[in-house]
Design a protein around this nucleic acid. Sequence first.
DNA 1: TTTTAACTACCACGATGGTGGTAGCTGCAG
DNA 2: CTGCAGCTACCACCATCGTGGTAGTTAAAA
Lengths: 209, 209
Amino acid sequence: MSNSGPIRILSVDDHPLLREGIAALVNNQPDMVMAGQAATGAEALQLFQQLQPDVTLLDLRLPDMSGIDILIAMRSELPEARIIMLTTFEGDVEIQRALQAGARGYLLKNMPPSELLDVIRQVHAGKKRIPAAIASQLAEHMSDETLTEREIEVLQEVAGGNKNREIADRLFISEETVKVHIKHIMEKLGAADRTQAVTIGVRRGIIQL
Amino acid sequence: MSNSGPIRILSVDDHPLLREGIAALVNNQPDMVMAGQAATGAEALQLFQQLQPDVTLLDLRLPDMSGIDILIAMRSELPEARIIMLTTFEGDVEIQRALQAGARGYLLKNMPPSELLDVIRQVHAGKKRIPAAIASQLAEHMSDETLTEREIEVLQEVAGGNKNREIADRLFISEETVKVHIKHIMEKLGAADRTQAVTIGVRRGIIQL
DNA sequence: TTTTAACTACCACGATGGTGGTAGCTGCAG
DNA sequence: CTGCAGCTACCACCATCGTGGTAGTTAAAA
């Protein structure tokens, strides 16, 4: 794409103070410039289309939509888009989904600014960059079996405090089937009971509370 | 205290980018100046003692210790310290504990910078300032009964996936007593079962995962 | 086409969880 | 000193959960 002029950056995060910090840092670099900022998914997509930034910094949690969905939307618009997730830790499943959806980098907000600049430059140069701390977190559960959509749905219901009978009614299946799903969930997550299944699911970013 | 010169501010947060954003904002104000920044509780306490800032911005989650404990330590050193919690939402119990421990303000990181400046000035002037959004969140559970220390301990064990029998062994009490505690926990939280008790406890900041 | 994964369903049984009531002990506040 | 809150303990009983096994259907992959 553009190999002349500074790297034009779009920052998407619902924390204005953090965006301001990124802007201050970026605009201090000779080879970078903030092209725009967005606080919501809708704003982000509009600005992305309008500005066509070289690199996009994207938070995972925004008020109106999931960062993953924004990522997907941006890449369907511009498959070559260089997008870096910048977020507080969210569990291996979130990381995995972001990378599968085409993120070129994954950074934590508590990392030093130099790391951010480094990753921006590398990603802009066409590379992928995942810090070791994140990669190891990812490797930890690499071999784990993933939950199916239905299982996640059931786990979410379990987290809501529903009994098997109630879950069955809500999902229009039999109570026995619910039991089978929960059994599989516990096996896959290595949980001793439904409660621990929920806590592990939350920690790993499989469900939200 | 000091009614001459700019408001001297100490920022405590483990996100360097956010601290940078705060610093940029603050140093742009004619009546404020960043006195120092800290990323850990230990650093924070050392700098607090050394700098004696007019206003301290304090995150709730830091790598080495809880923001509440830092708050308490600072106020035991300097009871008149003006401290504002600046954090992502953490549940009403965390807010309540912070205010009880003597915080003069409670802000969310996703609030507009103007709000932050406003609160800094008001708190520096000796007032307390809790935004309406937070106050209403607090009022929601104002009449709720709080869990006792023992109950929180039991709830934490429940979250770990332990059976009543196992919890009993770990806490050196009888299984029947564990049941009584859990019954009380569910009543107080309005939970239908132990699993929902855990999810409510996490959402409200009573336990961590 | 055969195989595999996912979802569904049923049965039976032992383990665990949740409810109700009673009650003793301690420490603190009125 | 009296009452209350919190922690402890026991009992009985029913509801729910979790485990084991079997099995049919569909859709996608090999």
